[in-house]
Amino acid sequence: MVSAAQVAVEVDGLSKRYGTLEAVRSVSFAVERGEVFALLGPNGAGKTTTVEILEGFRSRDAGTVSVLGHDPSGRPRALRERLGIVLQELAVEPNLTVREVLTRNAGYYPSPRPVDEVIALVGLEGKASSRIARLSGGQQRRLDVGLGIIGRPELIFLDEPTTGFDPSARRGAWDLVRALQEGGTTIILTTHYMDEAEALADRVAVIARGQIVALGPPSSIGGRDVSEATIRFRMPPGVAASDLPVPARAIGEFAELTSADEIESLHRLTGWALERALPLTGLTVERLTLEDVYLRLTAGSDGAGSIGAPTEQLSASVGGRR
């Protein structure tokens, strides 16, 4: 159990409907202070609605929500002063400069970060006097992050913060998220990128069809840590699947087997091969990636329908990854 002071966000039985569409159905979770919490889910799964309710932008139909000890539905200014919000698209007056916008927004908060510090944190030193309209897409996103942290927030909502970033800008954004977390900031992140959730999040909630279908650390969510491993190798010359010491099946030139105890299976397999001086070229051992788990959990839901695959197909493709 965690005490109330350690909880940044607590959501219990949250529901929201638009007409006949149940966008969020009895969602419950808690986010601890200092935690990086990721919401994963296909478009239309309800993650944006959930976040917007937490931000106080949208009302809820049922359930209780506490954000930094406040009910966000009344949009208390005292709460808004402690939140940082980074939206997907930069929306700022185009004819103002980077410094002007940051200075203006700093004035909304009781104890903002110094403007120059924020400019340096998001790497816009050379662009401080440029008008927003003249920034590149990546620079605008960085300003967006700057606007999210200018008020020294205790809790930051990052809505797909690195969409459209090049790889080095992404790493930079990740470093910034980690630095904010080290400074004690709680972060709620929505993302489509599995590697991003894996690299940053302490815990991940997978949302599909308005419900949380899995919740846990990225390393163990969806049973990743206890799922069977897939062992794969090129079939040695002159060997049939029935000759192998493990129950493998032949897939083209390769042999593949799934095992709940891959140490034991590998030991038998490699011992057998050593005795006979047979090569096991292309040997790989893989567990479910976060993406596999995600696709399995969200299979059949809107938005994921085209890429969501049934479980059998998924497990067959597992060995082919990486």
Partner: peptide, 17 residues
């Protein structure tokens, strides 16, 4: 333009009344 670009939404989320 302010509404459709999300500018109003962003300011609605900020502490300015």
């Amino acid at each position: 333009i302010r509404r459709e670009t999300g500018l109003l939404k962003r300011l609605r989320l900020s502490p300015i009344p």
